[in-house]
Amino acid sequence: MLNSSLAYVILRVIPESTILMLSSFILLDLKLDKLKVLKYGFFHGIIVTLIRTLPINFGVHSLLSMIALGLILFKVSGKNFMEVVIAPCNIWIALALSEGIYYFIATKIININPEILTNYQTISGAVSTLPSLAILVMIIMIIKSMKKRMMKSF
């Protein structure tokens, strides 16, 4: 079980889920509709919060959150199943990479205490990890660019 405060959910989980939804729209070449991105991002954030309260081993919640994202995308996108399955996989790889990059920058360069970055209860824990979302968007744009180049060569 991963307990988060309401402030953490509002300041970190909901924005992260919204960025994940935006990333999904980008990778699936869906029309960027701000209202849909916000609505489904909020919905996904609530689902993620509920999943995190389940009494399951750490890490399983990530897989369940990924499945929830895939199901939302399948319903929303109208794309074929394989395209929809690949998008959350790419996003979760990008998310892990962005958080790893930011953790390195935050702890080694900016000298932020690692306990702050892993605190799911405080506002400082939520706010101090937000820059990783900007890194995530950059990685998604790189993935999108690489995907576009690869498709041109076929």
Score class of each variant (00 low, 15 high):
residue 134 A to R: 04
residue 134 A to V: 15
residue 78 G to D: 08
residue 10 I to C: 01
residue 138 M to P: 00
residue 21 M to Q: 03
residue 82 M to H: 05
residue 120 Y to P: 00
residue 151 M to I: 12
residue 2 L to F: 08
residue 29 D to L: 01
residue 21 M to A: 11
residue 132 S to G: 02
residue 129 T to M: 13
residue 147 K to M: 09
residue 130 L to M: 06
residue 121 Q to G: 07
residue 116 I to V: 15
residue 146 M to S: 07
residue 19 I to N: 05
residue 119 N to T: 10
residue 106 A to K: 01
residue 68 A to P: 06
residue 4 S to Y: 11
residue 17 S to A: 15
residue 49 T to P: 00
residue 102 Y to C: 07
residue 68 A to W: 04
residue 56 I to K: 03
residue 151 M to Q: 15
residue 145 S to T: 09
residue 56 I to V: 14
residue 101 I to H: 09
residue 31 K to G: 02
residue 92 W to C: 04
residue 46 I to V: 15
residue 103 Y to R: 09
residue 57 N to L: 14
residue 85 V to A: 12
residue 122 T to W: 05
residue 12 R to A: 00
residue 124 S to M: 06
residue 84 V to M: 08
residue 151 M to F: 07
residue 79 K to Q: 03
residue 39 K to A: 13
residue 116 I to F: 11
residue 61 H to R: 02
residue 68 A to I: 03
residue 60 V to Q: 05
residue 7 A to E: 15
residue 153 S to L: 15
residue 108 K to M: 10
residue 108 K to W: 03
residue 99 E to N: 07
residue 5 S to V: 05
residue 138 M to E: 01
residue 74 F to K: 15
residue 9 V to W: 03
residue 76 V to Y: 02
residue 120 Y to S: 09
residue 93 I to F: 14
residue 78 G to M: 09
residue 99 E to D: 05
residue 127 V to M: 06
residue 148 K to H: 10
residue 72 I to S: 06
residue 127 V to K: 03
residue 70 G to H: 11
residue 116 I to H: 10
residue 30 L to V: 10
residue 145 S to V: 01
residue 29 D to H: 10
residue 1 M to Q: 06
residue 148 K to L: 10
residue 58 F to N: 05
residue 108 K to N: 13
residue 11 L to V: 04
residue 16 E to C: 02
residue 36 K to Q: 14
residue 14 I to W: 03
residue 125 G to C: 01
residue 40 Y to K: 04
residue 75 K to S: 13
residue 98 S to C: 05
residue 53 T to K: 07
residue 115 E to A: 13
residue 12 R to T: 00
residue 129 T to F: 12
residue 51 I to S: 05
residue 153 S to M: 14
residue 6 L to D: 02
residue 114 P to E: 14
residue 41 G to I: 12
residue 116 I to D: 10
residue 52 R to V: 08
residue 67 I to F: 08
residue 144 K to D: 12
residue 125 G to W: 00
residue 89 C to T: 15
residue 84 V to Q: 10
residue 101 I to D: 08
residue 44 H to Y: 14
residue 51 I to D: 04
residue 108 K to E: 13
residue 121 Q to P: 00
residue 56 I to N: 00
residue 46 I to Q: 09
residue 13 V to G: 02
residue 30 L to A: 08
residue 41 G to A: 13
residue 78 G to F: 11
residue 66 M to K: 02
residue 105 I to N: 09
residue 6 L to G: 01
residue 42 F to A: 06
residue 80 N to I: 02
residue 115 E to I: 05
residue 26 I to C: 08
residue 125 G to Y: 00
residue 85 V to S: 04
residue 59 G to L: 12
residue 38 L to K: 03
residue 108 K to H: 11
residue 113 N to C: 06
residue 153 S to V: 15
residue 133 L to Q: 14
residue 119 N to H: 06
residue 113 N to Q: 09
residue 119 N to E: 10
residue 65 S to V: 01
residue 147 K to N: 11
residue 153 S to Q: 13
residue 113 N to E: 13
residue 27 L to Q: 08
residue 6 L to P: 01
residue 27 L to Y: 11
residue 24 S to I: 06
residue 124 S to A: 08
residue 15 P to N: 04
residue 55 P to T: 03
residue 124 S to Q: 13
residue 68 A to R: 06
residue 84 V to G: 09
residue 31 K to W: 02
residue 149 R to V: 08
